[in-house]
């Protein structure tokens, strides 16, 4: 990065360390933090949307929707995350390629499944073989987001379902007595009041999601844990910056990062909880009312 880093063997002490910490590989490491943060930023709302959909279906008055909603939460919650991450991603990836194969290569005669091989025509590869590596990474990342959202959406659905049930029945009955339709009761009374009940469960999920990001490496995305292991491993002079086993320091750094993430989350979530309790008929809401008097 700096011109003084051209000959790393001649460097000593602090300038060596400075050059070491700014190698291309370290820059990749720093970028991977952004990958993790982006994953969190994209996955959390997506999972919440999945959860909201699941909870709505689970409460639906139609049997078919109820079965889908409850089936989704029960199935995904019951499968160990790691199994889901290993199986579902491959299935999704191959499903997409199979679909593209049917669309783009209708004349292809060779079997797609050949023993252990999965082979679609070159035009059906997603992303295409000649696409830049960036697109392969983006594709892997999108698969990761979908998988994370599905898994965490199922848990969120259960939390939101419970929260919707926890809203006092009288509130809904009063709204109905005023002549509101089913949808109006849902939008104007149920949803605004349920968040306060959902938040403790959702904040738990958020914390678990933060800690689950190292699963990204299973999905082929080079995340911070991958880079920490790769950079921290002992290096011989085949590398420009040889060093002994430094994994301890890299993992300590990751620990600080994750602790900081959870601390910030706790502070923010406490504020949100405070805000949501305003004027609610809950213990926290009541305490706020008394304090204000």
């Amino acid at each position: 990065m700096f011109s003084s880093c051209a000959a790393p063997d001649t460097l000593q002490g602090l300038s060596w360390l400075l050059c070491y910490l700014t190698t291309g590989k370290h820059i990749d490491f720093y970028w991977s933090f952004l990958t993790v943060l982006t994953l969190l930023a994209v996955t959390a709302p997506t999972a919440l949307a999945f959860g909201f959909g699941g909870a709505m279906m689970a409460r639906s008055q139609y049997l078919a929707l109820r079965i889908i909603g409850k089936g989704y939460t029960a199935m995904v919650r019951g499968i160990p995350d790691i199994v889901f991450f290993l199986f579902f991603v491959i299935a999704l990836d191959q499903g997409i390629e199979w679909f593209m194969h049917q669309v783009r290569c209708p004349d292809w005669t060779d079997p797609i499944r050949n023993g252990l091989e999965f082979r679609v025509c070159p035009e059906a590869k997603v992303p295409n073989n000649s696409a830049a590596q960036l697109w392969h990474s983006v594709y892997g990342f999108v698969l990761a987001v979908i998988t994370f959202a599905l898994v965490f959406g199922a848990f969120a659905a259960n939390v939101l379902y419970g929260a919707m049930q926890a809203v006092p029945r009288e509130q809904l009955e009063t709204a109905e007595a005023y002549g509101m339709s089913h949808g109006q009761v849902f939008r104007r009374v149920l949803v605004p009041q349920m968040w306060v009940f959902a938040l403790p469960g959702l904040s738990n999920l958020w914390m678990i999601l933060i800690k689950a990001t190292p699963l990204l490496f299973l999905l082929g995305v080079q995340d911070i844990v991958y880079w920490a292991r790769e950079l921290g491993g002992s290096k011989t002079s085949a590398y420009a910056y040889p060093h002994p086993d430094w994994r301890l320091y890299y993992f300590l750094f990751l620990m600080v990062f994750y602790l900081a993430m959870t601390k910030v989350s706790e502070v923010v979530l406490a504020r949100v909880q405070n805000r949501l309790s305003l004027g609610q008929a809950t213990a926290a809401g009541e305490a706020q009312r008394r304090a204000a008097v």
Binding site: P8, I27, E123, P127, S130, A131, A238, Y239
Partner: peptide, 30 residues
């Protein structure tokens, strides 16, 4: 977007581990 340019010449993707010097490794430039 991902499948654009399908008609171009095919690229061969070489898979390696990148953790086995001196056979293959990821150098300091990444």
């Amino acid at each position: 977007a991902l499948t654009a340019g399908a008609s171009l010449a095919q690229t061969v993707r070489m898979g390696t581990e990148g953790a086995y010097p001196p056979y293959n490794f990821i150098n300091d430039a990444g």
